[in-house]
Design a protein around this nucleic acid. Sequence first.
DNA 1: CTGCATGCAAATCTTTTGCATAAGA
DNA 2: TCTTATGCAAAAGATTTGCATGCAG
Lengths: 140, 140
Amino acid sequence: MKYKYSKQREYIKEYIMGRTDHPTADMVYKAVKKDLPNISLATVYRNLMVLADMGELNRLSIGDSSDRFDPKTNDHPHFVCKECGSILDMEEEKIDEISKKFSLEMPGEITSYKLTFYGICEKCKASENSGYMENNKKSA
Amino acid sequence: MKYKYSKQREYIKEYIMGRTDHPTADMVYKAVKKDLPNISLATVYRNLMVLADMGELNRLSIGDSSDRFDPKTNDHPHFVCKECGSILDMEEEKIDEISKKFSLEMPGEITSYKLTFYGICEKCKASENSGYMENNKKSA
DNA sequence: CTGCATGCAAATCTTTTGCATAAGA
DNA sequence: TCTTATGCAAAAGATTTGCATGCAG
């Protein structure tokens, strides 16, 4: 729990903090590499874990291959576009609000949650007809 | 989309259908291997994908290392015990009910969701004092 | 027969680790 | 000086894939 300063972590943190697109470790690596050409992917992973441990960011898996990193450290729902792959933050929902909304029997004491919606974002829906393509994935 | 019958798939399907514990591919493999000693893990993965494609099961990632397979094909919330690792199904919630409960702005058209609660199940909470241990993971 | 399915091994991918060296306190 | 951090390469774990052969239609 006793971490000492490192330039690498500084850059990694700063990069993540400036994003809302939930980058993967590799995306962070590629980005930070521009400023610190010698940084290694292992260092990125290690620091991402340290930062998560320090409560500076959250790690999340949305179902696809790699984990994502989010500077928003509170639990909140996400929206994943099946078309362009973008991951959007949604308005925050405190866990007890969710518990209330879901009048489900909770099979235990809840400490956190993950809520992800899948669909087609406005941008993609709009561009579906115009043949425009915004992000990654194939537009079928 | 044209699948022909296979004994392997038959057994895999039957195994999954009889479970509520969301087994991993490897768990399915080990279980089915008792009846079909020559089956390979690759075949299990392939058939799990086929079955998912046929709508016979759902694949889900709860955050930890391996994906899980669920015979319940409709969207429904899950509860994951951080203590024993067990994954429990929760009462079903139709997507539009969720949308209503969350008076969030949906950044697009929603087609499905994943909702997972993390906490400590009743069993573990009860046994925490008695030193009893139910499932896998370490009890800290 | 003809083509999908299987078993096996090798290949991928993502994430973690071991280790010698560098850097922070 | 003592300890944590880094870079590199190797290891690990999960899932996928190539290929020759087997089985269903």
